[in-house]
Design a protein around this nucleic acid. Structure first.
Length: 477
DNA sequence: CTATGGCACGGATT
DNA sequence: AATCCGTGCCATAG
């Protein structure tokens, strides 16, 4: 089904050709983590494929030291800051390269498989996924990969919106569904929210006390201190009722629903949800000095070099005829995989070279400087099919010199620059501007968008509407 | 009555 | 062919 648009010539040729195309495409759209899983899977069931303890640079083919990128390819030829160095970097340690801010959960797992295990995120994902649209699933994946060890949300909703170019209300919608999963209340931002979610679910099957939502939402501090008298006063109920409220809560609700460890059992080859734990591409200045050239490192998983097992090759030549068929298949598969991985690296490198060239000022100076760009445009420049670019961009994340991790698709965002300008306008506003006024300001800068669109951008950025902003401004000053 | 958010449509993008 | 994104229209809240 995936090959549907590949008709025409070539179809009648050997099956290797179409298999090659198919596999190249699937590999291309994989994240680094998924690629590693694929390789491991193939290694485990294909005797023709072998992993030897010798690391070679995928670009120049030189032997490499046991860890780190290629010392030759990763060295700039000059120290010209105009130059950028793009190279494919085989990392056996790429899992430790998480530089994501605000996430302390799993900085450096010892076991490279740690982030592939079925853990809390996957567990919840399996529950919600069927209820969600495709786009919502991605949001859910991001939410779930940003939970702290108690299952609370360790990321701002605003950041999720910006990451996925969506509005806070749609994120909230997903969040609500997640909170109603086992463990009840996972993904809450606070204990209160977790408890409220549990009350919601409980209310569907049983009777819940009258003022319980109000008590949790507004008087949680009193509740935890067991100040029944005060609670009773605030809610205008009797002391007895207040007491029974507390009792109900301690009996039926769990303030840390997701606390405790989620076993370490492994996940075989389940179609795992997107997990944004690791960037697929790193961009940084050489030696972190902005005067040096930019380095673009395309991470590729590697604990050695993949090759065809020479023993297998020999055995094949000698073997009996019936087995030959079978073994030949494995051999073909193995060499196909190796070729396709090379091709993937190559495409990624070409893509990044072009991309960095065009979006350099965005990388260095930030959102405002993002050039409008479409995948089709890059495809034309590189003379490849646009679907190739689509797949290469899909599901990948980039770590910028400022250590922020963003999706690669941000490089093709049409509205990011406008939103950045809008943010700027709002930050510098004297009094809270309403959407129409913002629209006019933008128009003065040569940006023509509808008022409705301003509202949407605002929501994506997590900026409150004008009348609510006014209050906030005075509160902070 | 004004500002904002929801829904849905159509053109662009993938 | 499927999806995304900007926008217009309308309901609703303030």
């Amino acid at each position: 089904m995936r090959l549907s648009h590949q008709q025409g010539q070539g179809q009648s040729q050997s099956p290797l050709t179409s298999a090659h195309i198919a596999q190249t495409m699937t590999l291309l759209s994989m994240t680094t983590t998924e690629l590693l899983q694929t390789i491991d899977l193939e290694l485990s069931k294909n005797p023709a494929l072998e992993l030897i303890n010798e690391r070679r640079c995928p670009m120049c083919g030189r032997k490499l030291p046991p860890t780190g990128p290629c010392p030759v390819c990763s060295q700039p030829r000059t120290l010209d800051p105009e130059e950028t160095i793009v190279f494919v970097s085989p990392r056996d340690d790429f899992y430790s390269y998480s530089g994501r801010g605000g996430f302390d959960g799993d900085n450096t797992p010892e076991d490279p498989y740690a982030s592939i295990n079925i853990d809390l995120p996957s567990y919840v994902m399996h529950q919600v996924a069927p209820d969600l649209e495709r786009e919502e699933q991605k949001i859910a994946a991001m939410i779930l990969s940003n939970l702290d060890e108690d299952g609370f949300l360790a990321i701002e909703i605003r950041d999720i919106c910006r990451f996925h170019h969506t509005t806070s209300s749609s994120v909230e919608r997903v969040l609500t569904k997640i909170r109603h999963c086992e463990p009840l209340g996972v993904g809450a931002r606070s204990i209160e929210e977790a408890l409220l979610a549990q009350v919601d679910v409980l209310a569907e099957s049983t009777e819940v006390p009258n003022h319980i939502r109000e008590a949790i939402a507004e008087h949680f501090d009193l509740l935890s201190k067991h100040h029944f008298g005060e609670i009773a006063k605030k809610l205008r109920v009797t002391n007895e009722e207040a007491k029974s409220l507390c009792h109900f809560i301690s009996e039926n609700l769990n303030p840390f629903p997701a606390r405790s460890n989620w076993g370490n059992f492994r996940q075989p080859n389940d179609s795992s949800p997107d997990v944004f734990h690791q960037p697929d591409i790193l961009i940084y200045y050489l030696n972190n000095n902005p005067k040096n050239p930019l380095i673009i490192e395309i991470i590729t998983p590697s604990r050695g070099t993949l090759r065809i097992n020479p023993l297998f090759q020999k055995a094949l030549n000698k073997s009996a005829d019936e087995k030959k068929e079978e073994w030949k298949k494995d051999l073909d598969k193995a060499s196909l995989l190796i070729k396709c991985i090379q091709q993937r690296s190559n495409t990624m490198r070409q893509l990044m070279e072009k991309l960095v060239n065009i979006q350099k000022s965005f990388i260095i100076q930030g959102d405002t400087y993002l050039e409008p760009l479409t995948r089709a445009h890059i495809a034309e420049a590189l003379d490849v099919h646009e679907s190739t670019i689509s797949r290469a961009v899909a599901n990948k994340t980039v770590q910028l010199p400022n250590k922020k991790i963003i999706p690669l698709s941000t490089f093709f965002d049409r509205s990011l620059a406008v939103r950045a300008i809008m943010r700027n306008i709002i930050e510098n506003e004297i009094h809270a501007l309403n959407d129409t006024e913002i629209k006019n300001r933008l128009e003065k800068q040569g940006i023509k968008i509808a008022r409705r669109t301003v509202a949407k951008y605002r929501s994506m950025e997590g900026i409150l509407p004008a009348h609510l902003r006014r209050i906030e401004k005075f509160a902070t000053v």
